[in-house]
Amino acid sequence: MGQIEWAMWANEQALASGVILLSGGIVAVAGQFKGWQFGAYAIAAGALITLLEYPRSKRKKGSTIERCGQKHMTAVVKVFGPLTRNYYVRAFLHAGLAVPGGFILATVLGTVCLGIAAIIYFVAAVCGEEWRPIEVREEPKLKVSETIKRPPENPPPRPPPEARRKQADEGHANPTVVQDEV
């Protein structure tokens, strides 16, 4: 069995929790809940978490599919260097951002999800994982002459390979053409 890459799971969990926290904050502010100020905080925290977690990290093995528009956010995340690359920092950042959201009902679900993401990021950090940007490498383009090996000799429908060998041995050039006797 392969080793689990915890950061991949933490990234998906944190991205979802950022969106949930953002939407819960919008509900709290729009509904003028008691303590709606925590909802305003949740909007800001949810937006920050969503922007931080949008770019995926490169996997150790295999391929990683880049999210749409990820390269723009990857540049922003790379600017902050070790603060965004280190998963210990992300774990404590998410745990700290989750606390104020627990004071009103509209943001509790986002807070719980963010706390779970913080735990998964901590496990990823303990396992030695680190955020790495996805570099897009261009595949070498093949020339047309390299892709065509040998064009077919007979028009379709072609007989199976065994029948072609027998016909070649017997001296028939084209099995589909029947010559008329004069």
Score class of each variant (00 low, 15 high):
residue 85 R to P: 02
residue 156 P to F: 11
residue 116 I to P: 07
residue 137 R to N: 14
residue 95 A to F: 04
residue 123 V to F: 13
residue 90 R to T: 01
residue 158 R to V: 14
residue 114 L to D: 05
residue 93 L to M: 07
residue 101 G to I: 01
residue 104 I to H: 00
residue 132 R to V: 13
residue 156 P to Y: 07
residue 147 T to H: 14
residue 168 A to W: 14
residue 146 E to C: 01
residue 109 L to W: 10
residue 164 R to A: 10
residue 158 R to L: 09
residue 144 V to I: 15
residue 163 A to S: 09
residue 91 A to R: 06
residue 142 L to D: 07
residue 93 L to I: 00
residue 132 R to Q: 14
residue 147 T to F: 08
residue 168 A to I: 05
residue 144 V to H: 15
residue 120 I to W: 03
residue 137 R to D: 06
residue 134 I to W: 00
residue 161 P to A: 12
residue 115 G to D: 04
residue 151 P to W: 05
residue 138 E to T: 08
residue 95 A to K: 01
residue 136 V to K: 06
residue 141 K to Y: 10
residue 132 R to W: 04
residue 102 G to N: 13
residue 118 A to N: 02
residue 152 P to V: 09
residue 164 R to Q: 10
residue 173 A to T: 13
residue 123 V to M: 11
residue 88 Y to C: 00
residue 106 A to L: 09
residue 141 K to N: 06
residue 124 A to N: 03
residue 90 R to F: 00
residue 126 V to K: 15
residue 101 G to E: 01
residue 97 L to Y: 01
residue 179 Q to G: 03
residue 167 Q to D: 07
residue 158 R to S: 04
residue 146 E to T: 02
residue 144 V to T: 14
residue 114 L to K: 04
residue 175 P to M: 04
residue 86 N to T: 04
residue 116 I to S: 14
residue 134 I to M: 03
residue 147 T to Y: 15
residue 157 P to G: 08
residue 132 R to T: 10
residue 125 A to Y: 05
residue 177 V to I: 15
residue 104 I to Q: 04
residue 175 P to L: 08
residue 117 A to C: 07
residue 128 G to Y: 00
residue 96 G to C: 15
residue 150 R to A: 11
residue 141 K to W: 07
residue 161 P to F: 08
residue 95 A to C: 02
residue 110 G to A: 04
residue 154 N to T: 08
